[in-house]
Design a protein around this nucleic acid. Structure first.
Lengths: 125, 125
DNA sequence: GGCATTTTTGGCAATATATGCAAGGAATGA
DNA sequence: TCATTCCTTGCATATATTGCCAAAAATGCC
């Protein structure tokens, strides 16, 4: 049976993953990791949703400990708390590439036998 | 402005992160990556929730392309589709360590000045 | 003070997610 | 065939997430 420690560990890991698990937030983190700190209005322009929505995504990322903010006048700049976040996100690439390769393989095998992909997957069993 | 390609890319990344963004699913992926394939009932015993719930988590991870299943009799074993997933998850550790270090630093600085953590964070501005 | 700019917050509706229970397959063995 | 075991799916419910609008803070400038 799962220990309390394992439970806490899983929860901590999930909290980071949850913070990143949204297209807008992935985009924000990715952009900042490549081009440095950005303010809310810049991000709003790029992303094309309401400012309030972007602000909420940012404060969620801040609460998760992934971003910190710095105020200049009325402008608030958000930046990564740690380069390790960029490293972590780049690890996603391999996973996506592998997934893509698998999808292509399944599709190719189905075509080979003149089946639909669903038929092929069923036949695989 | 965000391009369609960027949008799709963010969506693809988020789909993997979303699949992992739950304590139970993090635990499952972690366990399998360390100790190999497991069947639904083993995981159910370890985790302590209903079988149907575990089964759903597993099929979600399968749909996300992170696990595949193999049937032996009435038993279904789930395993990682790719070692890169374990690598990716281990990248989380650095992020968590960094977050923890930051939290400790903030707490220590607050104690230093005999403030609450909230007061200290406000004073940081 | 009054005004403009930037950001955050409250409220609310729409949507998505998580869970257990109960019922329904699927494979095995008596 | 019947019972058993393992797993998945339908349904109902509870909770969480997302997004916009409008209103409120915060700051700087005149």
């Amino acid at each position: 049976m799962m220990t309390d420690q394992e439970r806490l560990r899983a929860q901590a890991r999930a909290s980071v993953l949850k913070a990143l698990a949204h297209p807008t937030r992935v985009y924000i983190v990715d952009l900042i990791s490549r081009t440095g700190a950005h303010c809310v209005c810049e991000l709003t322009d790029r992303i094309g949703v309401d400012t309030s929505t972007v602000s909420r995504h940012l404060s969620l990322l801040k609460n998760a400990g992934l971003l910190y903010d710095r105020k200049e006048g009325t402008t608030v700049y958000y930046d990564l708390t740690c380069d390790c976040i960029a490293d972590f996100m780049s690890g996603l690439e391999s996973v996506l590439r592998a997934r893509h390769a698998r999808e292509r393989a399944t599709f190719a095998a189905a075509v080979e036998h003149d089946e639909t992909v669903e038929e092929h997957q069923a036949a695989e069993q």
